Computed example of a mutant assay.
Amino acid sequence: MSGSPGAVRRAGLYAGAYLGPFGGGIAVAMLPELGGTFGVSPGAASASLTAYMLPFALVMLASGTLGERWGRSRTVVVGYLVYAAATVGCLLAPTWETFLVARAGQGVANAFTTPLLLAALAGAVEPSRLGRALGWFGSLQSAGQTSAPLVGGLAAEVDWRLAFVVLGVVALVLAVIGVPTEGNTGEARPRPTLRSAWRPDVVRAGVVAAIGFGCLGGLGFLVALRLQDAFALDAGPRGLALTGLGIAGILTARLIGGGVDRLGPRRCVVIGALTGAVLLVGVGLAPAVWLVVACWTLAGVPSQLILVGVNTLVLGSGGGNAGGAVSVVQALRFVGSSATPAAVPPIYHADPLAGFLVPAALLAVVVPVALPRARPGAADPDRP
Rank of each mutant, 00 (worst) to 15 (best):
P21I: 02
A109H: 02
V203H: 06
G320L: 10
R132N: 00
P345A: 10
A45K: 04
G135V: 04
E182Y: 05
Q141I: 09
Y80D: 00
W160N: 02
R204G: 01
L274I: 12
R333W: 13
M53K: 07
V310R: 00
Q330A: 11
A322C: 03
M30V: 07
G336M: 01
T243G: 13
R10G: 12
T75L: 02
R191T: 12
L245C: 01
Q106Y: 10
L174W: 02
T312L: 11
G377M: 04
A7C: 07
L49R: 08
P200K: 05
G249W: 02
P302I: 01
L263Q: 11
L154V: 02
P32V: 10
E68I: 12
P94R: 05
V358I: 15
G24C: 06
V76G: 04
G12P: 14
V176L: 09
N321Q: 02
E126W: 03
P127K: 11
A57C: 03
V329I: 06
R375G: 03
P381T: 15
D261C: 03
L353W: 13
G123H: 04
F356N: 02
T297E: 00
V358D: 14
A44P: 00
T146E: 10
A104Y: 06
A205Y: 07
V335D: 04
V165Q: 11
T113R: 10
S73I: 06
A57V: 06
T193W: 00
L242D: 06
S327L: 02
T98M: 03
G324V: 03
T50M: 00
L134A: 07
C268T: 15
A322S: 11
T146Y: 06
A109D: 03
S4K: 13
V269H: 12
A62W: 11
I211D: 05
D382H: 01
S46E: 14
T75F: 01
S41I: 00
H349P: 09
G135K: 02
A224Q: 11
A51P: 12
T50S: 06
R129L: 10
G316C: 01
I256A: 12
P237M: 09
L219W: 05
L255Y: 15
V108M: 12
W70M: 14
D229R: 09
G23H: 00
A120M: 09
T252L: 08
R69M: 10
L315M: 07
R191V: 15
V125L: 03
A47C: 00
A163T: 15
Y348F: 07
G259Y: 07
G138S: 15
Q330Y: 13
V158T: 14
M60T: 13
A378R: 15
A122D: 11
D380Q: 12
G324W: 05
A124I: 07
G6L: 06
C215G: 04
L332C: 14
L363Q: 05
L150A: 15
L174C: 04
S48Y: 03
G324M: 10
L255V: 15
G36L: 00
A47L: 13
P5S: 12
L279Y: 03
T181D: 15
C90G: 07
V328E: 11
I306R: 09
L61P: 13
P94A: 04
V270T: 08
D159C: 05
T65A: 14
R383P: 01
G246C: 12
V78S: 13
L279Q: 08
V82F: 14
A122H: 06
G355T: 12
L242M: 09
P5C: 08
I211T: 08
A124W: 01
G239P: 04
